[in-house]
Design a protein around this nucleic acid. Sequence first.
RNA 1: GUGCCUGUAGCUCAAUGGCAGAGCGCUACACUGUGGCUGUAGAGGCUGCGGGUUCGAAACCCGUCAGGCACCCCA
Length: 424
Amino acid sequence: MKRVIQSVKGTRDFYPDQMAIRIWLYNTMREVAESFGYQEYEAPILESLELYAAKSGEELVKEQSYVFTDRGGSEITLRPELTPSLARMIAQKQNELNFPVRWWSFGPFWRYERPQKGRTREFFQWNVDMLGVSSPEADAENAAVLATFFQRVGLSPQQVLILVNNRRLTEDRFDAYNIPAEQRPTVSSWIDRREKISPEAWMEYGKEIGLSPEQITNLKEMLADKDLWKQSAELTRFFAVIEALGLREYFEFDPSIMRGLLYYTGTVFEAWEVGGDIKRSILGGGRYDNLTRDMGGDPIPGVGFAMGDVVISLILEKYGLMPKDLYINPAPVLVTVFDEERLLESFQLASELRRAGLNVVCYPEPAKLPKQFKYADRIGAKVTLVLGPDEVENGQVALKNLINGEQVSVPRETLADQIRTIID
RNA sequence: GUGCCUGUAGCUCAAUGGCAGAGCGCUACACUGUGGCUGUAGAGGCUGCGGGUUCGAAACCCGUCAGGCACCCCA
C-alpha cells in the first residue's frame, strides 16, 4: 500500500461533493438569518487564552481547547466557540454601534476531544446573536430564527424540538429549596444526567452530592411540572411571541434544560431530535447579559445560539432531507482536442466561447476521442464539441448533445447561441 | 482520561489454523471521428506495524500504531 500522510485526527476533508453540502448549509443559514435582518460578521480564529478564562465552561477551556505558545511567548487558543469574541467586538465598539445589533456568522471551531458520532475536533458552527436589548421578546425572536431554519430545511416539530428553560426561574426554585450557591453547578449536572442513567442510580447520585430527601422530592416535582414556566414572566412573554410568530409547535418548556456554559443568565434553549437515536443536542443558546462587562466594557445584554454542522447533517441525513445531486459541474461545455495539430485551434475555440459568457472546459491534451467523451460524460458536461479536419476546413464545429446523443454541424458564428439552447 | 469494537486490493467487504477472494472502480480490446449499455481480458496485496505460539497464521497470544463507538463534556 502506498503511504499517504494521514489527515489530523478529528478533521474532515471536504471533497467537492461534501463542499457542495457545506455551501448549501451556509447559503440556507444566510438566507434565513438575512430574512430576520441579521448581518454577517467574522472574528479571528486565533484568540488569547485569557478571552475564555472568565466565562466559558471550565472543562471547555482547560481540557478541550487547542492552546499553544506563539513565537512571542503569548498563549494562543484556536477558538472553541464564538460568543466571547463577539462580546469583545461589541465591547470595543459599544459607542459606535447601532443597537440592537443583529449579527450572524458561520465558520470553523476546534475542540480537543475524542471524535465520535456527531463530534469532530474541527467543526463549523452557525452563530446568531442579538445584542443591546434584554427583553424576552428579543429572546423569542432570536430563537425564531432557528425554528425558521428547521422549517426551511423541511424538519417538522415531530422530528426536532426546541426545549426552553430559564436560569432565573431555576435559581428561584433553588432558593426556595435552600440549595446553596456553591452546590448549584453540581445539582445542575445531576439534573442533566437524569435521562442518561437509571432512576435508582440517579437517586443514589443525588444523595451522594449531599441533597436531602426533601430537596430531592422538591427537585423531582420541579422537573415534572410542565406548567412551571407560567410562574416566569419572562417565559410567559417569550411563548406569547413564539405563538404570534406561528412557531409554537417547535417549542416546548423543559425544566431540565441547564446548559453548561457559565455566562447564560436568563432564558436558555437546546434543540433535540424527537425520534431519539441521535442523542446529542443539535444546538444550544440563551441569554447572556454580563458578558461584555466581563470583557471590560459596559454591560450590554445579548441573546444568541450556536448550531454545529455535524449533528444537523446527521439529522438531515436521517430524515432524507439532504439535497441530492448538489454537485453540478460548473462547466457544461467540453471542447475535445482532435490531435496535436488541432490542439491550439481547440484552445482558441474554448476561449472564444468563454468570452461569449459560457463556462468551458478544454481537454488538456490530445487523447483518443472515446476517452475524451467518457470524461465529458463523467464530469456531467451537457455538450461536447469536436474540431476535426473536416470541421476546420468548412468553418464548422461538430456539436454533440450528450443528453439525447444528437450531433449537428454548426457554423462557428452561431455556436454559442446553439449551445445556450441546449444547456438552459 | 476510562471502556468496548475494528484494521485484508483504490472503495465496500469475504475467507474461523491449510493455495488470499468477490462486487464496484480502474486499464485495454470488441469500437482507429464519439460517452452512457453490454461482453471479453488485464493490472492491482509485506492481510496496519513488531514480536510470539504452530509443521503451517489474515485468523490464536502479547505489544504497538491507527480508526470507529460509548462514557465525560459539548455545537
